[in-house]
Nucleic acid binder design. Structure first.
Lengths: 235, 235
DNA sequence: TCCAAACCTCTACAGTGTAGACATCAGGCG
DNA sequence: CGCCTGATGTCTACACTGTAGAGGTTTGGA
């Protein structure tokens, strides 16, 4: 009898493996959103019984964590042959690119770690941290200083990505109409500034905005460092 | 016959109202996390049939949105009689305070807006935006410039809060043990910097870190503005 | 007293995560 | 060859979820 293949291809003839499962999960999330990722549907996509998934992941939460890790693995790493500031810039744009490619996963990236203490997180999640620390320390920062810079930088970076994803939903065409309509609903008395900003809100350029933010941050850092190291060099 | 009151007090003798429902939902989330907020459990807490909730909110998603809005309403607003930079500082600390008071709600604050375009968001969510725009514009920024500053500022702010919540889970006692254990698990070869930073990671002071970040950001902004306005004043 | 609206409950359905027992299959060993 | 063993996948079942639809109950006004 032919195998029932009406819904979802069998991922391959051989046995499943963790990676295949996670890739299927990621596809599902990319295409239909986080809520569409149910164990049953995942099984369907893989062409197996839903319970088969449990051979490779402990539970749904672990699937989600795995999806997040998979996305982080897409981050390209650069050789550190440039100035640390350029390095940070490139890493920022790279993270932004990956996030824009998987917008539905971003909530996982952002709030997933909230439930697991830093020490217990999978190595993949911690790699960017280690990398940035390395860049900064090689650039002459003290470990403690590097940690501070990392926090400010990554904080800003994730914040920007969230911001950008908020402002830019779906396709821009209907976005424009929606925005104008939405803004008009707001009382002119309570939201005068916001209402007048419709044009600026529409021509949002995420990459440039990110770059500008980083420039501001780095400029501030330079200033900050001058103060701190001036004191240190006096000793 | 006595009313069955074994689980959850009736919120009051009279009929329910939207506010009571949302407050109960917020309590539930604060105490038992986002996942504990089911319509059935909410009904139980309110001492009514689960379906009673649907009289006041369309569905579960709306309950969650309502909870987020409720939390944002806790934000105290300050009179704008100080320098704009001080104003921003105060708003940042205020948001941080509220978020630390309701850590379980933060994922909602951060990812909730992702699903609704800016124009369609409830007024409560947009109020901080409007307020900051007002402060900046009164301080002499162009509307467009104010928007940029707002984005950098709020991006950094939310990023910081997420960072802080990640590093600081539950009580610090067991946190220390967990952190050390977790870090030792990492290979010394792949994570040399991270492993050496255990002490610094432990003495994290969120408020100070936030303040420092803002200082860096504002310093950078000052620099940035000098460049931009210098050109503008030349005209 | 009667009505109408507001409020609440009951029942039911389709969907969820996952524990536990079972079936199927591969390969190694006698 | 037969037989065992472990890996892999399936089946069933349970407790739970959101919520549609129909009905009951309470309340205030005429």
């Amino acid at each position: 009898m032919e195998r029932d293949d009406t819904a979802g291809h069998r991922a391959g003839p051989g046995p499943l493996n963790r990676r295949t499962v996670l890739r299927a999960a990621l596809d599902l999330v990319d295409e239909h959103g986080l809520e569409a990722l149910s164990m049953r549907r995942l099984g369907q996509v893989l062409g197996r019984d839903p319970m088969a998934v449990y051979r490779y992941t402990a539970n749904r939460k672990e699937v989600l964590a795995g999806v997040a890790e998979l996305v982080l693995e897409e981050l390209e790493t650069f050789p550190d042959d440039v100035h640390w500031q350029g390095q940070l810039r490139r890493m920022a744009h790279e993270l932004r690119r990956v996030c824009l490619r998987h917008p539905n996963v971003v909530p996982l990236l952002v709030t997933g770690p909230l439930s697991t203490p830093l020490g217990l997180r999978p190595a993949g999640t911690l790699r960017p941290l280690e990398q940035i620390l390395g860049i900064l320390i090689r650039a002459g920062f003290s470990p403690r200083g590097a940690l501070h810079v990392y926090r400010a930088f990554y904080g800003f970076l994730y914040g920007h990505i969230l911001n950008e994803l908020q402002e830019l939903i779906a396709d821009p065409h209907e976005n424009e109409a929606l925005l104008r309509l939405g803004l008009q609903r707001l009382s002119l008395r309570d939201f005068p500034h916001l209402r007048s900003l419709a044009p600026e809100l529409l021509e949002y350029d995420g990459a440039q905005e990110l770059d500008e933010g980083i420039s501001i941050l780095l400029a501030g850092l330079g200033q900050h460092l001058k103060d701190t190291t001036a004191a240190a060099e006096g000793a």
